[in-house]
Design a protein around this nucleic acid. Structure first.
Lengths: 194, 194
DNA sequence: ACGCAGGGTAGACACTGTCTACGCCGCCTG
DNA sequence: CAGGCGGCGTAGACAGTGTCTACCCTGCGT
């Protein structure tokens, strides 16, 4: 979506994405991606004046990837809102688990330039999908749709976060990943349909 | 609780806690706390062989602080489980908001030596308080207590995380902090009592 | 009185982000 | 066609970092 795919900028971002997936955020240095792209240590500066700019560009790719996955899921799955929400949740958690370093980076607001690059807004379409489904699955007595959606997203995000940290199995004494997710969905959306 | 309060080790940790609260995790370098303690850059090495060891010691203080606050809350508030859970939740979120840098550090598993120092287990007493209250507030049709407690904790944690990131108001379009918290509590524990 | 160990000093190394001056090559203009 | 000029990458420098190592100094026990 950004200019030519073969340019140095694209190669640098690609190297960064690869690195963050493989070794985590802390492995992504300007000099290292320069090395991987076979250019001098000062070259990235043309496209990323600071480290933050580079990380932000990488995180952007992450959001794009996650969004694409969610959209694919929406294409694959039954239109029933509850079914879709469950699928979306699994996609979210699966992404967090299999793209750990990227997921971490995506929410490291201290490393990202969420202001200038409006990076946060990259996550808005994602939230819009969730909000729409929640609005349709919402029961009359539930909280307003926006609040309900926010609470559910927070729950998803928290599960992803605490899983990654490894403290949930430690604390709850269970390794049944899915139980927590099901409990969260039922809490916010009511009992699962038969 | 650790040895003498006046020793260099204690001074270093104190300087680190201060720094992390004031400027965030990234400001805490071994050399900087050495400077603040008025010792040479190599001195901390006696007590913290690596950066991870220092950060872990600081995070430990954070968990101790949070635990103390929660316990104080439990002393201050009505014994009714639901009331206590609400108070605990507010304490948790308040801590995350007012001790942002520390809260972040506490859950940066990539920076902490959660293995050797068994740092994760520092959070267990905290979870135990939550789990106990949840067990008492739980309705018969709810998920098992451990799962319910895990789901609720995840929700709390997610709210704290997304708040800190500033994306919740952006996404939900509301600045009513408390609505989300109330929604989460009601979702997991049922409608609020009159 | 001796020496020995714990605790702090100081220098070195490799690495990082950032800044600056410098070349190279191609394109646009006169 | 000649000239220059601007984008792009190179290369060196600087301050800062974590980590390692050799050293020293002081106080204690024998």
């Amino acid at each position: 979506m950004d200019a030519d795919e073969t340019g140095l900028r694209a190669r640098l971002v690609a190297a960064g994405v690869d690195l963050v997936l493989r070794e985590g955020q802390s492995a992504v240095s300007l000099r290292e991606i320069a090395r991987r792209a076979g250019v001098s240590h000062g070259a990235p500066r043309r496209y990323f004046p600071s480290h933050v700019d580079l990380l932000s560009a990488i995180a952007r790719e992450g959001f794009a990837d996650l969004t694409a996955r969610v959209e694919q899921t929406m294409r694959d799955v039954d239109p029933d809102p509850r079914t879709r929400l469950t699928a979306l949740a699994r996609t979210y958690l699966d992404f967090a688990a299999t793209h750990r370093g990227m997921f971490e980076l995506m929410f490291r607001h201290d490393l990202l330039d969420s202001g200038r690059l409006r990076l946060r807004e990259t996550s808005l379409p994602l939230f819009a999908v969730l909000a729409d489904l929640v609005a349709r699955a919402r029961r009359p007595t539930d909280a307003p749709a926006a609040v309900l959606a926010g609470a559910l997203w927070a729950n998803l995000h928290g599960i992803a976060q605490l899983w990654a940290w490894g403290s949930l199995p430690l604390a709850t004494g269970t390794t049944d990943d899915d139980a927590l997710l099901r409990a969260a969905l039922e809490a916010h959306l009511g009992p699962a349909p038969a």
